[in-house]
Design a protein around this nucleic acid. Sequence first.
DNA 1: CTGCATCCTGCGCGATACTG
DNA 2: CAGTATCGCGCAGGATGCAG
Lengths: 124, 124
Amino acid sequence: MTAFAPDPYDRDCPTRQLLDRIGDQWTVLIVGTLGDGPLRFTEIGKRVAGISQKMLTQTLRALVRDGILERRMYPEIPPRVEYELTDLGRDLAEPLGVLTEWATQHMDRVARAREEYDRAASGR
Amino acid sequence: MTAFAPDPYDRDCPTRQLLDRIGDQWTVLIVGTLGDGPLRFTEIGKRVAGISQKMLTQTLRALVRDGILERRMYPEIPPRVEYELTDLGRDLAEPLGVLTEWATQHMDRVARAREEYDRAASGR
DNA sequence: CTGCATCCTGCGCGATACTG
DNA sequence: CAGTATCGCGCAGGATGCAG
């Protein structure tokens, strides 16, 4: 029996769409970071080190568009903008948390598997 | 308190590595497909429609290297090769299943959020 | 501070052709 | 059938500069 969704082969199936979204790693990292609560633009950028300003802007906008994040703008001088998970976003954070937990628990095994594989391959 | 792993900002942290892996959607789709049991190379290609032979080969090799899949070769004429989830792979399939389930349940809300967002944006 | 526009480069990936 | 090898393009994404 199939462990997964109907046909992930249909370009329009939800699974595909979600994968496209979490495909860029930034989505997952940002959602994870915001699990603590709302954060300002710059603050997110500092937490998710390595992300370019362009990708940050881009990813944030996409997430707001998807209803995962809410953007709250305070028309002050200087302007302040905060991003926060919506209910939907918090809901998504949960399965993502399961995944990251899996990662932290098993990635050492993956690392060992890689070493072994590479050693075997080079030895040939 | 942080909902996620230590620092996803470290390029070497397990979370990052996993994300890189599931980043290419093919990984998730292939692991999902193999949840039913072992499959032949060509069979996987047919199930995961849209994947090029190159990406199929590439992804399969990467997954074998990571110890997620096992490659079983039968030296017959014509040659037959089967891929199967390892214990580790089956273990990964579970959290992935949770994610895809989330997708099937909530992607309609995402779709609506997008429409609304686009409508508001274009109306301006 | 929080963006948006532009330019530019690398390389991911598809297409194609060839082997055992 | 199950791959490897090679070429070529498209576009994701980094760097830089400007705006409100």
